[in-house]
Design a protein around this nucleic acid. Structure first.
Lengths: 195, 195
DNA sequence: GTCTATATCTCGATAGAC
DNA sequence: GTCTATCGAGATATAGAC
């Protein structure tokens, strides 16, 4: 039996991702989670902010696994990146352009308004950068090159999500993938030529 | 004398950019604009949604000018891109990581919740793509290459804004610039070698 | 721990005097 | 065209029975 707390977290994650932090109401959350309103404050005495912080951290860390899942088993760097961007495009279309980054909308909303939640999003992005850096070094990149490529991949994905969701078209996702691949080729060439 | 309507539009643009659509209240707007509450509904009988649509379109079109301003006068493609990303980094730091894209936060908020506003953001992104495509063809790129590079530049900027605002660090902006430049070099090489 | 009822506040929106 | 008062609905949060 998925307990009440987990249902609340799952419903919150979905609503925050699609409607944002200020755009999601607590009543909407307990309704979607089929949970009594009182339970929300039982499990999250800190209210909406505490709930959001847990959602950001848990769903953010969940998402990091995709890095290892998609990139690590690929035969080479470029193939891995192409598959990752293609997979993101499929998900986006299948969910009617709703399921993109789990924390991006909230991250922009809170960046200048709520430092507790801003730090939570920063920790998640930092974890993604660490995970990605480790994954890319296995393809022979230096630590520094791997870190920069990871950041480029994440920013390309995030930016493409903004445009693709707005335009309801996966073209930006495809083009952003090209940019990430272009940088990967450059870094691989610099590394491969022994510099 | 800047009239009341323009003060309301200016205050709304700033608040929507920093706090988002659902995160900004109408009373907050009229307070910031030093305008009477009734004037808001006098100028925008459609209420918050009409106001937001006008803000998205006007501040979005305003922003398109930066493309011509920053890229067009550059001696070459790579220099132009580097200057644009560097300028964005300066602005971001000077405004304490508040002033990035004028419509990105709202775009993510409304993408799955308000089709009228979603279309407004889509029109703005479409206009940016057209402006950028025209600007880049002057550097000798084909129409198709120019369009793809433009999309890559915009997605790189948007994604970097998400990470840089969250991390309060301009590193993502610098790295995203590298990715855009890498793609520009690739496209210029393909075009320059006569293919 | 679960659930309902409710307190308090702020929201977007409206009415109407001036 | 300006401004105030206020509406009803919804928000977050709390109290307290079970």
């Amino acid at each position: 039996m998925g307990n009440t707390k987990e249902r609340i977290l799952a419903a919150s994650a979905e609503l925050f991702r699609r409607n944002g932090y200020t755009g999601t109401g607590l009543k909407q959350i307990v309704s979607e989670a089929s949970a009594p309103f009182g339970s929300l404050y039982h499990f999250f005495p800190g209210g909406k902010e505490q709930l959001a912080e847990e959602v950001i951290r848990t769903s953010g860390m969940e998402y990091a696994k995709l890095f290892d899942l998609l990139i690590a088993p690929a035969p080479d760097l470029v193939t891995g990146l192409e598959q990752a961007f293609a997979a993101a495009a499929v998900t986006l279309r299948e969910t009617d352009y709703a399921d993109a980054c789990p924390i991006a909308t909230v991250a922009l909303e809170v960046a200048s308004t709520n430092d507790t939640l801003r730090r939570a999003t920063a920790d998640v992005f930092g974890a993604w950068i660490s995970t990605g850096t480790a994954a890319f070094t296995r393809f022979g990149l230096t630590e520094d090159a791997s870190r920069r490529l990871t950041i480029a991949v994440i920013t390309s994905l995030e930016g493409a999500f903004v445009l693709s969701r707005s335009l309801r078209d996966v073209e930006p996702l495809a083009v952003a993938g090209e940019a990430a691949v272009a940088m990967a080729r450059e870094l691989a060439a610099a590394s491969g030529s022994g510099r």
